[in-house]
């Protein structure tokens, strides 16, 4: 049992809603998409069930150069009383401003930051680090974690820990670290990678990719040193219910919000 003498910030569970054409979808390793429902209804359900935050990723935006979904953001913000992040295809300060004005709490940037790293500094200066999440998609190539861009389709030649450190130094408020080698496999999170990044930066790290069993979450918070864990399919398809997962983590000694 925890016996804390002072309050601590809790480990966060973050359902991720991949959105395409206004519907929630989830693929296996970024392809082969399955329909998972109305994003506003799902968002409300997750908030009721104890989600600590939500992430919406417009997964078509980068490849098809579509503008982010400000209308969906507005509809979500109207009903949701927990924080949420929006990402996908964000390229300009104007994109970010439109999303924040629509009610998003944070934005997640990925390809645009890799193409022009000063974008991170500009957003942090203009809107504050607290709303700038830098998403980093990585793939294990041989023994090295390499950063991918354009929805995971293109290698950048950058090394994961070095890019995460640079993003933090440039003013990111948080990192969303996805192992594409684990994404959709339900074989557990990339623990060593997550630990290496968490130890390299002083900002919070959200681990993503590979959640399958409740024990995977305990491992990523403890061995992985993650501040938050993100998952999609295990929540969407009711394989693991949030309240049961939180109770499990609490019993295992992980500090969560019950």
């Amino acid at each position: 049992m925890l016996n804390l003498t002072y309050p601590v910030v809790k480990k966060r569970l973050i359902p991720c809603l991949d959105v395409r054409d206004g519907r929630t979808v989830k693929g296996i390793q970024f392809e082969g998409l399955r329909d998972a429902g109305d994003p506003v209804a799902l968002a409300e359900r997750y908030a009721r069930e104890g989600a600590d935050e939500l992430v919406f990723l417009d997964i078509t935006a980068t490849n098809q150069r579509r503008q982010p979904l400000t209308e969906l953001v507005r509809n979500v913000a109207r009903v949701l009383d927990i924080p949420f992040t929006v990402g996908g295809g964000i390229n300009t300060v104007a994109d970010v401003e439109a999303l924040l004005l629509s009610g998003a709490d944070k934005v997640s940037i990925n390809s645009a930051a890799l193409a022009r790293p000063d974008f991170i500094n500009e957003l942090a200066r203009r809107f504050g680090s607290q709303c700038v999440v830098v998403a980093v998609d990585v793939r294990l190539v041989g023994t090295e974690w390499q950063v991918m861009t354009r929805a995971g389709t293109t290698p950048t030649g950058r090394q994961a820990v070095a890019w995460c450190r640079e993003a933090a130094e440039r003013g990111a408020g948080e990192l969303l670290l996805t192992s594409m080698s684990h994404d959709g496999t339900k074989s557990g999170f990339a623990l060593e990678l997550t630990r290496a990044v968490a130890d390299a930066v002083s900002i919070p790290v959200i681990a993503s990719g590979g959640a399958g069993q409740p024990a995977d979450f305990t491992a990523v918070f403890e061995a992985g040193g993650a501040d938050a864990a993100l998952a999609a399919s295990i929540f969407h398809f009711n394989e693991t219910a949030l309240p049961a997962l939180k109770t499990y983590l609490h019993t295992a000694g992980v500090a969560v919000r019950l």
Binding site: V9, K10, K11, D52, Q130, G173, P204, R257
Partner: peptide, 30 residues
């Protein structure tokens, strides 16, 4: 980590804003 980002407890609550709440309750900080 900094920022202090996420849900944390409140302690030593007093005053009308916290009517009906306890130290077991969490609020969101960034």
């Amino acid at each position: 980590k900094v920022p202090h980002m996420g849900w944390n407890n409140l302690q030593a609550l007093r005053g009308p804003l916290f009517e009906g709440l306890t130290e077991a309750d969490h609020v969101y900080f960034v």
